[in-house]
Nucleic acid binder design. Sequence first.
DNA 1: TTGTATGCGTTATCAA
DNA 2: TTGATAACGCATACAA
Lengths: 351, 351
Amino acid sequence: MTKTTLKDIAKALNTTIATVSRALHDKPEISDSMKNRVKEVANLYSYKPNATALSLKFQKSYRIGVIFPKLSHYYVTQILSGMLIEAGKNGYKMLIAESNYNQFKELEYIKEFYELNVDAILILPSRKLSLVKDKLENLIRDDIPFLIIDRIIKFDQKTVPSIASDDYGGTTEGIKHLIDNGYKKIAHLRGEESSTLANVRYYAYRDCLLKNNMELNPDWVILCNKFNKAEGEALAIRLMSLENRPDAIFCISDVVAVGVLSGLKKAGIRVPEDVAVLGFSNSDLAEVCYPTLSSIHQPGVAIGKKSIRLLLSNINMKKNISRENIVMKTKVIVRESTSRIALSGTNSFRT
Amino acid sequence: MTKTTLKDIAKALNTTIATVSRALHDKPEISDSMKNRVKEVANLYSYKPNATALSLKFQKSYRIGVIFPKLSHYYVTQILSGMLIEAGKNGYKMLIAESNYNQFKELEYIKEFYELNVDAILILPSRKLSLVKDKLENLIRDDIPFLIIDRIIKFDQKTVPSIASDDYGGTTEGIKHLIDNGYKKIAHLRGEESSTLANVRYYAYRDCLLKNNMELNPDWVILCNKFNKAEGEALAIRLMSLENRPDAIFCISDVVAVGVLSGLKKAGIRVPEDVAVLGFSNSDLAEVCYPTLSSIHQPGVAIGKKSIRLLLSNINMKKNISRENIVMKTKVIVRESTSRIALSGTNSFRT
DNA sequence: TTGTATGCGTTATCAA
DNA sequence: TTGATAACGCATACAA
């Protein structure tokens, strides 16, 4: 019941562990008869090499550490699933840690992963990780690939690779979709100004409105900070109580958008006839709310897979990836909440 | 930049690794002056013991492997979060694997985790894992704790501990809630008959109806096999086309329930006035759909925490846990979909 | 073709 | 109080 080692097999065959090891590796110098005997016994004992010993020997753990803010976000689970698929294919296992948006925990987990000899570290940083940028920069080692997902952090000395979805492009496409559908007064519930993520989406929104000579009303741009349904609900009601009401609301997240839908319903406003609502992320919520929510799809699974491939290109082929800043294509998924002409079916694209 | 080892420190101080090791461990035999010198250098080099070497030495990895069918299910993320919290507190890291409901992958991952010398294995099995029960039983080792979550599998020889939510109790409470609210004809969209999980919920439904002298109509019990929104939608419409229509629908999952809501809407039926809808799991969907969905809360986070505590009681205190079959309390969360008298606010219980 | 010995980084046992 | 060395399990350079 306890694990069998080379020593056990050697003892059983009255030979040495070196011979056993070589036989199992099919080294040419070992005689066929010995190979057969060794393999038979190994099979009988269902021998498996001890991964820890191999780790120590080769200074390689076949483990990848990943840190994320919150597991219960659909987008995070999509990214992780992508990672698991690609890592699995290549014989790697994933070690996980949840930071709960706490930048100090993030630093702590990075340290821990290094101590655990992971072969690479992936992080979906919280917004606040930038606040401890210097500490982070000091922590990051050059000999182990480190990849930042979904955000970009600029360091003074180091260049660290990143991968993210094309939020600027996606937002642009989304706003254009609203314009194309005849919406003229587009509001935006945005994230905090210290968030590069929120800023990119806001800039895209602003640029697209300007380019199309649309009204850009400061009253229509409101900061979120809770990012929950209740906040979306309250802000929707606030927008609707304006003298000059918007006729479309672009939301920083699907959860906020769902809150907006609920707020509009309470205010007796029809979606999409009176007001359109556009979410961000294309989470699983978008298909279950009513009306179904148009949203900008972020390719979570693809990002996860690509992350691992990028890391492995460094680990296996020594490719220098430190200057890679990969941007993955987004896509507007049109559902009921922005379609004045009723849709026949729901679009269920999701990859 | 490369990791410093005991050897590096020993060399720097012109002593041996044995002394350095002892000094760092504050062994009484080491002189204070030596201790101080060692610690200073260790600090300077920011020495951290190599976890892999310790693993090999102590045959203990401080790693726990967990296998689940699909990460993107809210309930799974809750369980994992609970595990991460409790594991983190005790210095353990989690290795994860996604089986995609494939029983062969589940067996494969169990094998891999053993080879990786995890200190324990946790599994949220797919329904089909029971089909390869014999192989599973052969695979499970007695020297490493193995815990089955959310299902119960009976083996011929072994007894394996389990932890699950009290689905029978939760369902009973849920059906009683429907009865108390004046619903008289309660339908059930259930899971497949080969699933113990689905059966427990069905038995509770049936027993509760019988005990309360309610109509138990075979036409009102329908098997799901896709468990998605479309299926819920179709089955709702089918139920509503019956001569003898139910006035409440208890669903095997929240996703199915959301589909039912949508189907009822299409059929022009009001919820909860005409028909009540009750989900299962209390996922994040329940609060965002319209109307908001009453659902039976499964304490995912608590289950995750408890799992780890149970394992650690075996690992650290050698407690025999093989006969533990823990059942965690469920709770009906009442929202709009079952409340004929309108609720003032939404109930946001979730832990 | 096979055996011996070394090292990966630690801790622990035995000597000094 | 400190040093030398074995052991954890494995692969491999070197000897035989």
